[in-house]
Amino acid sequence: MPMVQPKSIKYRKLATHLGMIVFLALIIFPLLMVIAISFRTGNFAVGDIIPSNPTLDHWRLAIGMDVVAADGSVTPPPFPVLLWLWNSIKVAGIAAILIVVLSTTCAYAFARMKFRGKATLLNGMLIFQMFPSVLALVAIYALFNKIGDYVPWLGLNTHGGLILAYLGGIALHVWTIKGYFETIDPALEESAAIDGASPWQAFRLILLPLSVPILAVVFILAFIGVVTEVPMASVLISDINNMTLAVGSQLYFNPQNILWGDFAAAAVLSGFPITVVFLMAQRYLVSGLTAGGVKG
């Protein structure tokens, strides 16, 4: 830091704090707002910003309980939020594990082995990961329609098919893991090879245990990526009970009947765990993110 300090530094610090607080207030406002809305009575925001008579009705509906009004009328939950959450976790969990397995084996070969077409494949992967899958959805739909003819549990409207579709997007993770492998001294594996270990054994018994941190990062990134993916899931899944959160949440915004309060509770309920996981892991995630990936 500079050795020469101007006198105005005190005012500058004050101004920065002030600016930060105003900016943060603007940024955090929508998030606080949605929490407040989830406790507000009714689905229409007329009245107070901070709910004057808070209610848990929206939260009851979000976790799948009926709400009985004072006059005895029963409101059933509009959507199976917990089921959607479970679907999201299931699909994202399985897909993330498979993505880690596929990209680790790929990255190992790219980092440690010499073979024909290596540079071309690496560059090709970088180029193709920039093409958005939304544009090829017609083809992807046709593809899964076809797969479903031969293997029904991997066809349209199945979680198996959705997981399979996500396995194409491993390019960035391969690059991330490859970069990490290259920081590990190959001498360890070479000495194992001298002792008679096969490349597979050297990979599984020596390199993998050393790479657990980066595998965890890739797992979390892949998990969050799948949970927040919308277009593929909304084209492949049509049954309301098979939907993931990212697809199902849109149903709250039916133009004829916007369930604003119910959505707020469901959004806080489902968004909170993901946000906490991300914030806790953010220090480790940053290295993975700067490898070239872009999230909304």
Partner: peptide, 14 residues
């Protein structure tokens, strides 16, 4: 970093 940590599909709908 908070806006980045909240899943985008939730914050957009918010």
């Amino acid at each position: 970093i908070l806006p980045y940590a909240v899943p985008a599909f939730i914050s957009i709908l918010v």
